[in-house]
Write a protein that binds this DNA or RNA. Structure first.
Lengths: 196, 196
DNA sequence: AACAGAATATGATTGAAATCACATGTTACC
DNA sequence: GGTAACATGTGATTTCAATCATATTCTGTT
């Protein structure tokens, strides 16, 4: 049910939430109550800067967890908004901290999860550093970022919807992507002429 | 000497390295041998994308650690290059993993470090999402990113040197930054008219 | 079935940062 | 002291993504 380390927790450390589209699971600044698991639906983590720019930090879909890093903060650093009707499980912060102190294997699994998250963010950062919209979009698709709507995708890769649509079309025209349907694109199968 | 959790490790799990400017501590793809601490100098973590773009992932200076997330990877995901003559301490991956299994407090401290790193990356991601060069630079300076050279700074915030210099000058002209010297800028003291 | 609302898709225009180009200033080293 | 290497700084031009505008398709609701 829950991913690897959390499935061993007692049921009364979990709260099941049912959210409509647009509902907030938590808001930037709220005191941290725990970390979350998406049973179904789609929860988007966004952060708003002083200047009012909204940034998609993470796009959690079914079987993803989010707000894992909040374990050691007193308040959340971003908004969690359901972009689809969603079932979300909250895992109590207290319960995790207690268990972490008693169970080394549990603790190790959590650490591993965090380490992987760090690498994910680094990947995203690398992606954002690519200046060319076409190259960026190609890379992002190759890396599997385009699973939901293009609008969501655009926010994640740091481009406007329009720029993404254009890049997707151009890349399809160039044969670097295959258009598999309305708003659906897949990386073109690599020609194996890479050998030296 | 070493930061909080690592100072309790046995000395023979540490290797002291002395690096010249330009030396690689490790390269993208190398098998992971451990995590690192900068005693003095400056080590830059960069990643090169397929398209040849170099991205500064992290700029570790004296008393910083780097490659913490590599604990659970078999190979490094970026290059670590000394941008100044540096003294670096390598902390053996094996020793950490062993200790983690025996000492819950140690383990917890590591987890906390990783969680904070995740939040740092999120901050950087938020920064990169600000479109206006001036706003971005102002935010970055406010957050304390401009400590070394503007060139390094530019790479971290995702702008060209030139764009940074221009933004820095314009912000100084507007009185939002104070030029404290050649290539040195500080945030202007906030006027306290924020109260509602 | 009709309608609202959102996502997809593209075209035209504009604006801001990249790029190119070239000063000057600062180390550091022979 | 001379010079090579690099950082700072700023102007001129270009390019490419943002913005604005608009049409179409899809989905869900009443």
């Amino acid at each position: 049910m829950l991913p690897s380390p959390f499935d061993t927790l007692d049921v009364n450390s979990l709260s099941h939430l049912r959210c409509a589209q647009g509902d907030h699971v938590f808001r930037q600044g709220d005191p941290t109550k725990g970390i979350f698991f998406v049973k179904s639906g789609n929860v988007c983590l966004t952060r708003v800067t002083e200047s009012g720019n909204a940034v998609t930090i993470h796009n959690a879909r079914a079987d993803d967890m989010f707000a894992e890093a909040s374990m050691y903060s007193n308040h959340y650093h971003c908004d969690a908004v359901c972009v689809a009707p969603s079932e979300v499980v909250r895992v109590s912060k207290q319960a995790i901290q207690l268990r972490q102190r008693e169970d080394a294997t549990f603790s190790e699994a959590i650490t591993k999860r965090l380490a992987m998250q760090v690498q994910d963010y680094r990947q995203l950062l690398t992606l954002h550093a690519v200046k060319s919209a076409n190259e960026r979009v190609l890379l992002a698709v190759a890396v599997g970022k385009l699973t939901g709507s293009v609008t969501q995708f655009a926010s994640q890769v740091g481009l406007t919807r329009e720029a993404c649509y254009r890049a997707l079309r151009e890349l399809s025209d160039q044969g670097l992507l295959i258009k598999t349907g309305r708003g659906r694109y897949a990386p073109a199968p690599q020609k194996e002429d890479r050998r030296p």
